[in-house]
Design a protein around this nucleic acid. Structure first.
Length: 991
RNA sequence: GCCCCCGUAGCCCAAUGGCAGAGGCAGGCGACUUAAAAUCGCUCGAGUGUCGGUUCGAGUCCGACCGGGGGUACCA
């Protein structure tokens, strides 16, 4: 490798007396030259132990492996702004640092190129999504290359590449062809794992496993359609007719995770309606426990773990059946889920959701029961003559309410008495059953026992409808009959909770729960259970720009996998790729996948080799959501050229290897899960992407395709760069770059645009706020290295920070000063000399090395840079920069500002470049200070200072300090205690 | 409403429970310049949102409150 310095840009102006100054133009020349060199030499190509690119001898020559990952970027049409690269710079600094420690570092970047925005952008511009997407990727590649990121460029790909989505489809088929056996034992002894569907079929055939709802029939007695239906009940990817989120404005259905609280689409903010449609789903609920439990083993921000746990929403409780007299007079039961089975004695009414299937059978014919409160009969007199009319009116009103209306109506409880009574199974009391929309069909059983004494919502409802409120928990047993002025959910003991068979009185909440669950189970009334908030993942979309499902249906509607050798099933070109558009408010519209308009693609004839000969099939016309491609991309980086497997198992084992030690803070006995060593990205994917990818990874683990149990061992959530935005008097945004700051009359700054005062706001960078700054502007004005240093020095990576273009010059000055310590601005001669730094500078150098190493490792780049600036400032004061210090500075700077570091390193006479040069090592023996200032405190306040030897003993120091005049004066009346922290501090406390 | 994070100088941010300041921006003064910009040198600057507690000692730990940001929301 030849690493000669590049030729400096020729002085343009004759008046230029400093042709070798580190200017933006100089930075550009240096940066582009080194970027070309890195690319030519494949500097950042990481060797693989196996697979098509196997270079085991190179792997062996390197130290440990390190797998670093950025969140898969979406190639947007407007290009990057300065906020986007923040995470990429951080991972690049981290990667470069670890390369200098001798590690085999894999850092690559691909593109998440399927999906709605790309398709919408294509529709807007009237071009094929592939064309616009590829143009966007080209632009983004250019912008990122100019930043000098050390990616292994051989490993890049896009999700739209046929070679990539072939494997996305292959993984889909693995999931489709698997079921979750909750009783199967995993290697680590825990229970529950995915198994191939063929093993299920074998169990069903042999009778080892009964056919659910099979009425005792044998597997062979079932027709192929029936068999397929049974298997669908097990498959981890399955179709199901169920209420889904239909978004006419986008022309597609959406997953729960893509719908906001307000019942609108996260993307585009269109209304979303509940529709019964047959859709593909992924049985993520089967993994709910593992997805929650295994968070203990990963090194993630607690905040993100909490968000995932909340999303999974595991709650322990009980299911209890309350006997009820149905409208017909027969006896039935209403099953409820409760997390507070200890309060069943306080259940004074029940509520079922308006959509609950039991509602019809609950409502009696004829008139209201004797003595029914008027306000139980509904709000509309015309419709409240009978329970039947009142309930029908209420259900209709509830069904018409949008999510928005339910939201805005807030907590004002509404509901109607069904006319039926249930029996509290513990008190034996008859309790009324209501229909009310504060109970949701989608959670638990869609019905609740209402305990107004100990639940806020039930209390509000009971108060409004004059229902008795009973106390069954009190802070102490003595307060058993203290009146309840509001619901009580605090800690306490059970009271008023006894019948002939069981008593909870006096028990704490947990003990009471345990005893009552045992009682319920013994009596067959109920059982302890775990409930989850998470629902199965709706996986199909009615769009063009996504992976086609490798599924086809025969004439009976039975689904078959497209044979593996036919993958990828490519996306056909369609005459019109734009989705069928609907009025966003048209709830009655139905999705129409664009692929269904291509009959020659949809209809195929094929011999599946199953002895049934050539048959006609109809392809699935839905496409996958763009989460699919981002669920496993990190695995493809490991072995992107592999045509035989999504990743060679040996490569996966190498790059995703489990660490010897579990992550810090993991519970005892936790085994390290393996996975990506560092994943940096924004918190906006905390639930969706990170949960979906974990789910897929666990399926692949169960099926033996990967050895790691988690995809992302360490995840770091970066903050955002935000920026000021300005609005004029009409509230319109004005271009932020044209706004000038001027001092106002009262000294407060004011902001002026084209002569008029404007208001300053703070927000996300973007086109809509007119405050976007592109990296290209930074390259032109300062160069990539300055831009990198600035972004890394703004503050802690996890914090959101304001972009302040004025401050960038500080980073440039730092690089200029360091450059000047190496290169004479006028002559271009190297300025360093082989002189020894003095004691103080040597100490500072080794302290800096130690500190910078720790800071880089801990992703504290802002403090690392501050230490480098400090050391450089010390060197700047010298007439002759000592080579030893300057070279260490250059090497330590290299991860952050690699181009200028390469250039200075070459000018300092080194071959081989800085990318793999050894990072400086701190020698503790060199950190010697001849004198240390010891602080003398009297009662904790600094009152004196004394210079002492660094190795002074505690006793010596105590004696020395107590002899000081100020101390003697303060301790004339005696000494209570003396705290000595040699050699830096002594605190004397007088009597 | 509930949960999480953050409040240090005009601004961005440092500070294993031990001298409140590492670094940067802005400001001021000076040098260079015919002048300006750029650059360089020097310099000014807060007692850590508020109140209380623990401690020999609190920016740091604990509690309450105030302000900002994020998540979530009738989840039984």
């Amino acid at each position: 490798m030849s690493q000669a310095p590049i030729t400096p840009s020729t002085p343009t102006a004759s008046a230029n007396e400093t042709p070798f100054r580190y200017t933006a133009a100089m930075a550009r020349d240096i940066e582009i030259a080194w970027q070309d060199r890195w690319e030519e030499e494949g500097t950042f190509n990481a060797p693989n132990p196996a697979g098509p690119w196997a270079e085991p001898e190179k792997v062996g020559a390197l130290g440990q492996k390190l797998l670093v990952l950025d969140m898969f970027p979406y190639p947007s049409g407007v290009g990057l702004h300065v906020g986007h690269p923040l995470g990429y710079i951080a991972t690049d600094v981290y990667s470069r640092f670890h390369r200098m420690l001798g590690k085999n570092v894999l850092h690559a970047l691909g593109y998440d190129a399927f999906g709605l925005p790309a398709e919408q952008y294509a529709v807007q511009t009237g071009q094929h999504p592939r064309k616009t997407t590829e143009e966007n990727m080209t632009n983004m590649r250019r912008q990122l290359r100019r930043l000098g990121l050390g990616f292994d460029n051989r490993r890049t790909f896009a999700t739209i590449d046929e070679d990539y989505y072939r494997w996305t489809q292959w993984i889909f088929l693995q999931i489709w062809d698997a079921w979750y056996d909750a009783d199967a034992v995993r290697a680590d002894g825990a229970k529950g794992r995915a198994r191939p569907i063929s093993e299920l079929v074998a169990e069903l055939e042999s009778g080892e496993r009964a056919i659910p709802d099979g009425d005792g029939r044998a597997w062979a007695d079932l027709g192929s359609t029936e068999q397929a239906k049974v298997l669908d009940g097990f498959r981890l990817a399955y179709t199901d007719e169920a209420p889904v989120n239909w978004c006419p404005g986008l022309g597609t259905v959406l997953s729960n995770e893509e719908v906001t609280n307000e019942g609108r689409s996260e993307r585009g903010n269109y209304p979303v309606f509940r529709r019964n449609l047959s859709q593909w789903k992924m049985r993520i609920t089967a993994y709910a426990d593992r997805l929650a439990d295994d968070l203990d083993g990963v090194d993630w921000p607690e905040k993100v773990k909490l968000m995932q746990r909340n999303w999974i929403g595991r709650s322990h409780g009980a299911r209890v059946t309350f006997p009820v007299v149905l409208g017909t007079g027969e006896t039935g039961g209403i099953e409820v889920f409760t997390t507070r089975p200890d309060t069943i004695f306080g259940a004074t009414f029940m509520v079922i959701a308006p959509e609950h299937p039991l509602v019809d059978s609950l409502v009696p014919e004829g008139a209201w029961p004797e003595g029914t409160h008027d306000d139980w009969k509904g709000q509309h007199a015309a419709a409240s003559a009978t329970p039947k009319e009142a309930v029908a009116a209420y259900r209709l009103a509830a069904s018409r309410k949008s999510e928005v209306e339910r939201q805005t109506e807030g907590k004002d409880k509404t509901g109607v008495f069904t006319g039926s009574f249930a029996t509290n199974p513990l008190t034996g009391q008859s309790i009324p059953v209501f229909v009310a929309d504060y109970v949701l069909m989608g959670y638990g059983t869609g019905a609740i026992m209402a305990v107004p004494g100990h639940d806020e919502r039930d209390f509000e409802y009971a108060s409004k409808f004059s229902i008795p409120i009973v106390r069954v928990v009190a802070p102490t047993a003595e307060q058993a009959d203290m009146p309840l002025t509001e619901w009580f959910v605090g800690d306490g003991v059970a009271v008023n909770s006894a019948n002939d068979a069981v008593s909870l009185d006096g028990l704490g909440i947990d003990d009471a729960k345990a005893r009552i669950i045992a009682h319920l189970e013994a009596g067959g009334i109920g059982h302890g259970t775990i409930n989850y908030r998470i629902r199965d993942w709706l996986f199909s979309r009615q769009r063009y720009w996504g992976e086609p499902f490798p599924i086809m249906y025969d004439e009976d509607g039975v689904a078959y996998a497209v044979p593996e050798e036919q993958l990828p099933l490519t996306l056909p070109d369609v005459p019109d790729y734009s989705p069928k558009t609907f009025d966003p408010d048209d709830a009655q519209s139905s999705p129409e996948p664009p692929l269904s308009r291509v009959p020659e693609w949809v209809n195929v004839e094929m011999d599946l080799g199953d002895g049934r000969g050539l048959r006609r099939f109809r392809r699935e016309t839905n496409t996958m959501p763009n989460w699919a491609g981002s669920c496993w991309y990190y695995l493809r980086y490991l072995d992107p050229a592999n045509h035989d497997a999504l990743v060679d198992p040996e490569n996966e084992r190498y790059w995703m290897a489990r660490h010897a030690e579990p992550v810090a803070g993991a519970p005892a006995g936790t085994r390290d899960p393996g996975g990506v060593d560092l994943y940096v990205g924004g918190v906006e994917h905390a639930v969706l992407h990170l949960l979906y990818a974990r789910f897929w990874h666990k399926v692949l683990f169960d099926l033996g395709h990967v050895s790691s149990e988690e995809p992302f061992r360490k995840y770091f959530s970066q903050g955002y760069i935000q920026a000021w935005a300005y609005t004029d008097s009409r509230g319109q945004y004005v271009p932020a770059s044209e706004v000038r700051e001027e001092p106002g009359k009262d000294g407060e700054p004011t902001f002026v645009w084209e002569g008029q005062l404007v208001n300053r706001e703070y927000g996300k960078i973007g086109k809509s706020l007119k405050n976007s700054v592109s990296p290209d502007e930074m390259y032109d004005a300062y160069g990539a290295d300055t831009f990198r240093v600035y972004e890394m020095s703004m503050g802690p990576l996890e914090l959101s920070k304001p972009w302040e273009i004025r401050a960038v010059v500080g980073s440039q000055r730092f690089l200029q000063r360091l450059w000047r310590n190496v290169v004479d601005e006028e002559t271009g001669a190297v300025r360093v000399a082989d002189v020894s730094p003095d004691q103080a500078l040597t100490t500072q150098l080794h302290q800096t090395i130690a500190g910078v190493r720790e800071d880089y490792e801990g992703l504290r780049f802002n403090t690392a840079i501050a230490k480098l600036i400090e050391l450089n400032n010390a060197v700047t004061k010298l007439d002759v920069p000592p080579r030893e210090v300057v070279e260490a500075l250059v090497l330590m700077l290299a991860p952050v500002a690699p181009h200028i570091a390469e250039e200075m390193w070459a000018r300092l006479g080194h071959d081989g470049g800085v990318a793999y040069a050894a990072f400086p090592v701190s020698d503790p023996a060199k950190i010697v200070e001849s004198q240390v200032t010891c602080v003398v405190q009297i009662k904790g306040k600094v009152r004196d200072r004394v210079d002492v030897a660094p190795d002074i003993s505690e006793d010596e120091l105590r004696e020395l300090v107590l002899a000081r005049d100020k101390v003697r004066a303060a301790t004339a009346n005696g000494i209570r205690t003396v705290i000595v922290r040699a050699p830096k501090l002594v605190n004397v406390v007088p009597l």
